[in-house]
């Protein structure tokens, strides 16, 4: 499963990271060397193996249905690069 420059461009797009065209070749090479190396897992027959779902053997604890927070508008917006009247502000989104 070799990664070409178009694939790098595509995954960079999915990951929302701008990548310059002149970086593509280098990145493709790097990603390929890592992917080639992890390929060795293919040696193992895992057809009868259940995937690990959690590193901890316990059942999931649940929260009661209680409102435990009041108004945190300031706390959640104070670090925002742009905000106004308690809203986060972003470049216009077109639907």
């Amino acid at each position: 499963m070799s990664v070409d420059q178009n694939t790098v461009r595509h995954i960079a797009r999915l990951a929302r990271i701008a990548v310059r065209d002149d970086e593509l070749e280098h990145l493709a090479k790097e990603l390929n060397s890592i992917l080639d190396w992890v390929e060795q897992l293919g040696e193992l027959d895992t057809s009868d193996v259940e995937p690990m779902t959690s590193a901890v053997e316990t059942t999931m604890k649940m929260r009661e249905d209680e409102v435990t927070f009041g108004n945190l508008q300031d706390e959640v917006t104070r670090n925002a690069p742009a905000s106004e009247d308690g809203f986060y502000v972003v470049p216009k989104v077109v639907e």
Binding site: M1, V3, T7, V8, I11, A12, L14, A15, I17, L27, L31, I34, L35, V38, L41, G42, L44, T46, V49, E50, P51, M52, T53
Partner: peptide, 26 residues
């Protein structure tokens, strides 16, 4: 992030992520 995005992307999940989680079980 790019590697992670790639191994989770459509068509590769089973070959990479699922496989790795099975290896984790082993």
């Amino acid at each position: 992030v790019l590697i992670g995005t790639y191994v989770l992307s459509a068509g590769y999940y089973d070959a990479y992520y699922l496989k790795a989680q099975k290896v984790r079980s082993l």
